[in-house]
Nucleic acid binder design. Sequence first.
DNA 1: CGTTTGGTTGAAATGTGTCAAACTTTGTGG
DNA 2: CCACAAAGTTTGACACATTTCAACCAAACG
Lengths: 261, 261
Amino acid sequence: MANTDACTTGDVILPEPFPPDHNPLVRKLESILALTDEERQALLALPMQVAVIRKDQDIVREGDRPSRSFVILSGFTCTYKASGEGRRQIVAFGIPGDMPDIQSLHLKVLDISVATLSPCSVGFITHEALWDLCMRCPRIAAAFWRETLVEGAVFREWLLNVGRREAYARMAHVLCELLVRLRAVGLVEDHACTLPITQVEFADALGASTVHVNRVVQELRADGLIELKGERLSVLDWEKLKQAGDFDPTYLHLVQERAAA
Amino acid sequence: MANTDACTTGDVILPEPFPPDHNPLVRKLESILALTDEERQALLALPMQVAVIRKDQDIVREGDRPSRSFVILSGFTCTYKASGEGRRQIVAFGIPGDMPDIQSLHLKVLDISVATLSPCSVGFITHEALWDLCMRCPRIAAAFWRETLVEGAVFREWLLNVGRREAYARMAHVLCELLVRLRAVGLVEDHACTLPITQVEFADALGASTVHVNRVVQELRADGLIELKGERLSVLDWEKLKQAGDFDPTYLHLVQERAAA
DNA sequence: CGTTTGGTTGAAATGTGTCAAACTTTGTGG
DNA sequence: CCACAAAGTTTGACACATTTCAACCAAACG
């Protein structure tokens, strides 16, 4: 029953110790529920193989049957699919704390590929260890489940975005979403953040062409809503950007909610 | 902490006994994992309030905070969102056995609405009962989780569909998907099935206009791929339809897979 | 039967894609 | 530190898929 772990076929993997206090996984779960000491211990005891992966590399590929999943410790990823004609659709951006392929815990064959958009440090955790964790800490299992549900909610909003908003609003919307999500993990200062996403990649996320994305970005700049240059995004007028993008953060389900008894 | 159960505000709800042997929920779970006697008992013992809802009614609405979820026992539903400008995007079709709002078990505020496309009979189950079931039968909890992950995989494929395929292929793709899913629950005979979905609704699912959907449907007919009239769909050339829709059923994760130990 | 719902058609308007070239910034090796 | 290459962005002109509007038709229905 050999599993294929494509991960970084032939790429540099530099195992390195990771400071447990800044563990993005622990931080994320703590934002969802108050961890008991036992739960925190179990999390920190998770055997995690840390790897540094350079830009523009596939971490996993459609069709893989991974025997482990990974947490993004730093950097950005994109999750994408390709059509038969070779057109690419990015279906999600991954930021620190995310586990873009945790679905493989249940679904053996991957239906998506995940690539790095910037140099990334990721922590691989075997499915065996994750299952063990879920069995011993049902509340953590529930939190993982919840996370995948939020991911699903984001897919739905993207569907609305791509299907029923025009390019200008679409672009504004993803920018709003990225800003809110990045803020939640402490990566936004003064309405500005690092965003290593090219216009080509935005185009693939919006279901649009590069040329059109470029024109829409220029419009957003001309309208005084954003500043976007290189890897830096500054939001100049948050209210107008939200309005332009028809953005309501409810679907991100960020508010601290109590897990049902 | 009063929860709002919008369900069918002011609509007919006719509780009626439901034959336990045909319980679509049990059937669905059994297609994923072999239930123990105890698990089957727990499932059949679930307190379920059955309701018959007529066509074109919202079962739940965006913003609701339901205290229960529901299983579709018979009939079709659509899950949708609306943009600020009032444009509608259908993000999923629900068929018997599906639980379109099971996410509300974890996410308190609904980010979607679910409406009936045909007369439906649905079974409401309180979150309390579902939680209890999940706690007592972890394998059933895992199966529920898995189901929501498959749902996510379908959203991703739809994103690719809407973002990167043109209308003709988009239409062919959803038809392929519906046929495969309906076959899995025994609702297809001879490559034909009942499909109570209007062209307006297909348009909302494809992110297209009604007029264009109509033209594309006519093309599919002219090309000899389908017959679609009223509520009846017949696939005349499955291979060509799959090809036209760039359809590969892997993402539906239907194959019988073993839940990890 | 008239009314409603869903489907069909044509013509004109338009958002967006394509192509191809030029420009700008970033990174790198000499 | 310059020079060159590579990557990313910007531009214009044109093509075209798709939308919009508006009317008409057909089947279902009470």
